[in-house]
């Protein structure tokens, strides 16, 4: 059976969508990204204290995965290296890079923090998600100007085709100077009782990606 996309989750502006349905809307008093993500974390009653140590980019990725993965069969596949994680982003870890740079900019006020520095890599988000959900399979972080599914489809498709993973968490997450966005989806060969949702094709992913805009 061909792999299909079985679920998706998107965070745009102060809205969160699961499978295209609006599940959370931030309020006007959550103006910045981190505050919005913390408010959403509390709204969903999540219990994971490490969340508060994460930078905004990791909070964004973590929350997207947290709301997405329970709607899939990934929990049954994890732990055996059978779930891959293939994500892409634009600004890498720019927001935290700027915080670290600020702490070293003036030699007279040199005070870098290891707790900040560790988040100056975009793939730390993959690490946070992997720790939370015990995902131990293939992991790749692509960087691109914008969300272009072709590379994700090509690579995740090959991982599934060669049997290197049974399911793959894929998508785009971005926390830049002026905007943020996350769009994750799960591609897997669904169990027979699970209705196949969307084919693992670029056009289907693009349709899912734009869908929440019109909800």
């Amino acid at each position: 059976m061909q792999p299909h996309i079985t679920a998706s989750c998107a965070i745009r502006g102060n809205q969160i969508f699961v499978n295209g349905t609006l599940v959370y809307q931030g309020t006007a008093d959550t103006p910045d990204l981190a505050a919005f993500l913390v408010a959403a974390y509390r709204h969903f009653g999540l219990q994971y204290p490490k969340f508060f140590k994460m930078d905004a980019l990791c909070k964004l990725a973590f929350l997207t995965a947290e709301l997405l993965l329970p709607t899939t069969s990934l929990a049954a596949r994890r732990g055996a290296g059978e779930v891959g994680v293939v994500l892409a982003n634009r600004s890498s870890s720019l927001l935290t890079d700027l915080v670290h740079q600020q702490s070293i900019q003036e030699p007279a006020a040199h005070l870098p923090s290891p707790a900040v520095f560790v988040y100056t890599l975009p793939n730390i988000a993959i690490g946070e998600i992997s720790i939370r959900h015990q995902l131990t399979g293939e992991n790749t972080l692509f960087v691109a100007d914008s969300f272009e599914p072709e590379a994700l489809v090509a690579y995740a498709g090959e991982l599934l085709a060669e049997g290197s993973c049974q399911a793959c968490l894929c998508g785009w997450f971005e926390a830049g100077l002026t905007s943020h966005e996350a769009f994750f989806y799960v591609v897997e060969v669904p169990a027979p009782e699970v209705p196949a949702r969307h084919p693992h094709h670029t056009s289907a992913i693009e349709a899912l990606y734009t869908q929440p805009l019109y909800s």
Binding site: V85, V118, I126, S130, I131, G137
Partner: peptide, 21 residues
């Protein structure tokens, strides 16, 4: 192949699990 330790973001697995895999 690549793997993830799913253990810690900055400390390697004490058992080398991810590299072993």
């Amino acid at each position: 192949f690549s793997t993830n330790d799913a253990h810690h973001i900055s400390a390697p697995s004490r058992t080398g699990e991810g590299l072993y895999q």
